[in-house]
Amino acid sequence: MAQTVIIRADDLGYSPGVNTGIAAAVAAGSVGCVSVLCVPGLWTEEGLASLAGRDVALGVHSCISNGRPAAGAAAVPALVNETGAFRSSRFYRSAEQDPVPPEQALAEIRAQVAWFTEHTSRRPDYLDIHAVPSKSLSTAAEQVAAEMGLPFLGFGIGETHAVGRANLRLHLPPSHTAPYDPWASLAGALDVAPEDTALVHVTHPGYVDAPLLRRSGLTENRAWEAEMLCSAELPDWLANRRARMTDLRAIL
């Protein structure tokens, strides 16, 4: 029996180059869901337009470290800097204690879900979280997902959770490392995933541009992932490992 793999493409809206990489991977048929940055100040509307006509699962990539709050700066004062933009992920990672007030995280995620619905005219297929290791953020996203009856895909790396009709196991490659081989990363995830689980393999396809260099520490490795996801060899490569790609919605 073939193992199920859902390849998740994160960060739609981060930059024009990221949008291009994700759109190319979706067009190649290798992406099972796309996580969307639903905040003002980024390139999300352009990213959504690049997927027009593509039938792919879309989720809210709950974000408090790029762009500006969907709820407005006044509603989430602890999450913004003096310009009203979100604080950087470096701020959250360097904090000794979780600096995210739970009520502000809830307000912002609800506003991001509303932003998504307004710009797509549909409900999201799932929620997850972007970049920030905050328990308050994760708990808030999980609460909003539960309120809406949606899956939450922000659980810990390597944990197995019952979601829909399947058990899901999340794998996030160490893609900040160099040199980075996305094929080896995916092979390693398949090697350790239990046969009775569906592997959610998190990727960040994209192409390097100035906005990405200005904002992110994850740069050229996105291009390596885009190349893999656009490769005509990927389906056969997976089949040789007794695995097959599918859309997230197929197992919910």
Rank of each mutant, 00 (worst) to 15 (best):
C230I: 02
I157F: 15
L58E: 01
A73S: 14
T20M: 07
P151W: 13
S65M: 02
I129F: 06
A70F: 04
D236H: 06
V76L: 03
Q143P: 14
D125L: 01
T117M: 09
P102G: 06
N240A: 08
A24Q: 14
G29S: 04
A114W: 01
A141L: 09
H119Y: 04
A105N: 09
N66E: 11
R242P: 03
S65C: 14
L58T: 02
T177G: 00
P40D: 04
N81G: 14
L42K: 09
G47R: 07
G32V: 06
Y14E: 03
F152D: 09
G53V: 03
A107T: 15
V163A: 07
H171R: 00
L234F: 02
A27L: 05
P77F: 03
T139L: 13
V208Q: 06
G67T: 06
T120S: 05
R169G: 00
A28W: 02
T83G: 07
T44L: 05
A131L: 08
T203V: 01
L186W: 01
V144T: 10
T4N: 15
A114C: 02
A166N: 08
K135C: 02
Q3P: 09
G149S: 12
A232K: 05
A111S: 12
E220A: 11
Y14L: 12
D128C: 06
Q112Y: 10
V76G: 02
E82C: 12
E118P: 04
T160K: 13
I129K: 07
I64E: 05
C230W: 04
M245G: 05
L252R: 12
R169A: 00
D181E: 00
R8L: 11
L79C: 08
S35A: 15
Y14F: 08
P16G: 03
A198D: 03
M1F: 12
A131C: 11
A223T: 15
S231L: 03
D209N: 08
T4Q: 15
P235H: 02
A141W: 10
N19Y: 03
A189C: 00
L168M: 02
A232E: 12
C38Y: 05
P99M: 13
P16W: 00
L229P: 11
N221S: 13
R93I: 11
L213H: 06
A131F: 11
A70I: 02
V39I: 12
H201A: 04
E103T: 12
E96W: 13
P101T: 10
I6L: 11
S62N: 12
A198M: 07
E195A: 14
R222I: 07
E159L: 09
L218I: 11
S216C: 12
E159T: 13
D98Q: 10
R110P: 13
G217L: 05
A239V: 01
R244K: 02
V100R: 12
R222K: 11
R54W: 00
A166I: 05
